[in-house]
Amino acid sequence: MNHQKILADISARKFSPIYFLCGEEPYYIDLICQALEKQVLKEEEREFNQNVYYGLDVDVSDIIAEARKYPMMAEYNVVIVREAQLLKNIDNLEVYFSNPVKSTILVLCYKNKKLDKRKSGYKALQKNGTYYENKKLYENQIPDWINAHLGQAGYHISVRNALMITEFLGSDLSNISNELGKIILNLPQGATITEDVIEEYIGINKEYNSFELNNALGHRNIVKTNRIINYFGRNEKKYPMPLIMGNLFTHFSKIIKFHYVQGKPRAEQAAFVGVHPFFLKDYEIASRNYTLKKLVDIVDILHNYDLKSKGVGNSNPSNSELMKEMVYLILH
């Protein structure tokens, strides 16, 4: 069952006696758990009928005992176990999975892992509860997620600006959701999320960011690249060299990949390179500007300057100067 269906059922008060929430993406696990935490009981009912435990601090026997209690002056008894992946002897919950109490809603947040589907506990869950499992989104899927997330809230954003947010925030959906929340709180529904809006509420400089650096390097725009690098050098705390190095390695690795799928259908190119199809034209330009031999040299340059930034074979303590040297070698 997907998270949309589970959330819709919760809103309609169609509850399951057990929710086993697991997988690589904690955002949706937290989202479902929060919905249950807020929507099952009224605020005045929660003091005696809603208990939250942590896997490291509780025994399976205590969870079962709590789940077998009946509610006091409420319809449900809610038992939430956060960090359930840290529970010892979780297989012992099978006895409860096989015979849950209908007036209890047991929620297990089992992050970054999944249940062994060969065991009988999984089969009991499938029969008597809700088993939800997810996978982490690939980075090239994040811009579409941002677009959909904002669209559901009544906002509009271009693919380019969604990618800029992705380049800056990475693939942590919880963090992205929090940052987008700042925009949603301050702009009216129907608004378009522009670069100025992103700069004001998320703090991404529309001219000086990793996305623009990648673009400048890909187009071999020496003036723009140096302007961005100089800005990064003056703001090292906001643009630390390890973050920039990781971004550049990923970017040039994708240009290398593009070389191997030139002439292929666009969908195949996008899937292989790991980018949104909208940006394939930028990689096409970059592949014309950098031969495979040069790209291999660039990867070597990045590796060497990554070591230098960590103090290996480097007598120059300034990361700003290192970045200037590195970019010069990449472009020439």
Rank of each mutant, 00 (worst) to 15 (best):
S318D: 06
Y70T: 13
N128K: 09
V275D: 00
P143Q: 00
Q269F: 03
I244S: 06
Y19E: 02
I204F: 00
K113N: 09
G23Y: 10
Y53P: 06
H332C: 02
Q126S: 14
F168G: 11
E212M: 15
Y239W: 05
N205D: 15
N214V: 05
A8H: 10
H332F: 14
G233N: 11
F20H: 12
G263W: 08
I256A: 09
Y110C: 05
A8Y: 07
K308F: 09
I228P: 07
L185K: 12
R160E: 12
V60E: 09
I165M: 01
K117L: 06
G23I: 11
E47H: 11
K111M: 05
L163I: 12
G274D: 03
H259I: 10
F272P: 03
N230I: 07
E47P: 08
G151D: 04
G151A: 04
V273K: 00
E47G: 13
K254P: 08
L7K: 15
N247R: 06
C33D: 09
I6P: 13
L31F: 02
A162K: 03
K257Q: 11
S210F: 15
I90R: 14
G55R: 02
K111N: 04
L87A: 01
E212S: 09
V273E: 00
F168T: 14
P100T: 10
Y155F: 12
A124R: 07
V275T: 09
S61P: 03
I165K: 02
I228W: 05
F48N: 10
N186Y: 05
S253D: 14
P265Y: 01
L87N: 02
S11E: 13
A270L: 04
Y283T: 06
K324D: 07
A124D: 12
Y328M: 04
L213G: 07
K182R: 08
Q50R: 10
K119I: 06
L125W: 06
Y305C: 01
Y54A: 04
N235T: 10
V296H: 09
K123L: 09
G181D: 04
N99A: 15
T130I: 12
G233H: 11
D9K: 11
G181R: 05
G121D: 10
